[in-house]
């Protein structure tokens, strides 16, 4: 059973703006029957480059239909310039979030929008950009790179959730890992510094990072870690299990936990045990 938000369900059951615009000014088609989801987006654009009307047809699961419906609602009445800024994450947010396995539905929406705008502007149908990495779903290196950058993806599984790449025969997993490594290496410093987090965001991110990056590897060795408090840039934690009694727990804290948190949250963090 997929867990959808009420908003996703609502847009699935009562999709807005279904249909075809016969004299559309821009049309964007993405996906295919083989892939299991596809979206055709039609735009009617006035002389001030404002989107007068948007309609869609979608083949796919509930979240594909809801994402398409959401997209049309988000861009109607907006200028092309504004609409072009819509990201896949905006679509997901509009719907109150999507299950992570379904994020590719929001990416499909963003891609259809880009294509429709390009079509309107008469930009020659862009050939497949980049080189195909995932043969099963026809995903290119540039598409993967972009998804990794925009959504801060870190694992092959996440890349699959967002782009479908790697979700078939899995033979491209090494190549996807290379792309992730490449992007991580490339964007390491600047965005981290540039990122300004509110306290709540920071605490959430610390929690997520502990859950995703730290706990699994500690658990392999029979240990665990609990977040007790965050005071400014000081992260107070409790080590449990074998970690708690292990003589190298200080090493674990500084060398591993702190390093991870500095890398993935903000570089100023200091981790202390309580």
């Amino acid at each position: 059973m997929w867990e959808y938000t009420e908003k996703v369900k609502e847009h699935f059951l009562n999709p807005r703006n279904v249909g075809v615009i016969d004299d559309a000014d821009g049309v964007g088609e993405v996906g295919s029957l083989a892939c299991g989801d596809a979206l055709t987006l039609y735009l009617k654009i006035d002389e001030n480059e404002r989107i007068q009307d948007a309609k869609f047809q979608t083949f796919g699961c509930a979240s594909a239909i809801a994402s398409s419906s959401a997209l049309t609602e988000m861009i109607k009445g907006r200028t092309l310039e504004e609409a072009a800024k819509v990201t896949n994450d905006d679509i997901a947010q509009f719907l109150g979030g999507l299950p992570k396995e379904k994020m590719h539905c929001s990416v499909m929406g963003r891609e259809a929008l880009e294509k429709a705008i390009a079509d309107y502007r008469g930009e020659a149908e862009k050939k497949v950009e980049g080189n195909i990495v995932c043969e099963c779903f026809g995903v290119t290196d540039l598409q993967i790179e972009r998804a990794v950058k925009e959504n801060h993806l870190r694992t092959i599984e996440e890349v699959t959730d967002y782009t479908k790449a790697g979700g078939g025969c899995e033979s491209c997993h090494d190549r996807i890992q290379e792309i992730i490594d490449h992007v991580l290496g490339m964007v390491h410093e600047p965005p981290k510094k540039a990122r300004k987090l509110t306290n709540i965001q920071k605490i959430k991110l610390i929690e997520e990072t502990l859950d995703r990056e730290v706990k699994p590897s500690l658990k392999q060795d029979g240990g665990d870690i609990e977040l007790v408090d965050v005071d400014g840039n000081t992260v107070l934690v409790k080590l449990r299990g074998t970690c708690a009694t292990c003589s190298i727990s200080q090493v674990t804290l500084k060398d591993y936990v702190e390093k991870k948190l500095r890398e993935l949250v903000v570089p100023e963090l200091v981790v202390e045990e309580v």
């Binding site: 997929w2 796919g60 239909i65």
Partner: peptide, 10 residues
């Protein structure tokens, strides 16, 4: 043909 299973099930 031309429809997706999850949508049918829901």
């Amino acid at each position: 043909e031309s429809v997706e299973g999850e949508a049918i099930l829901l």
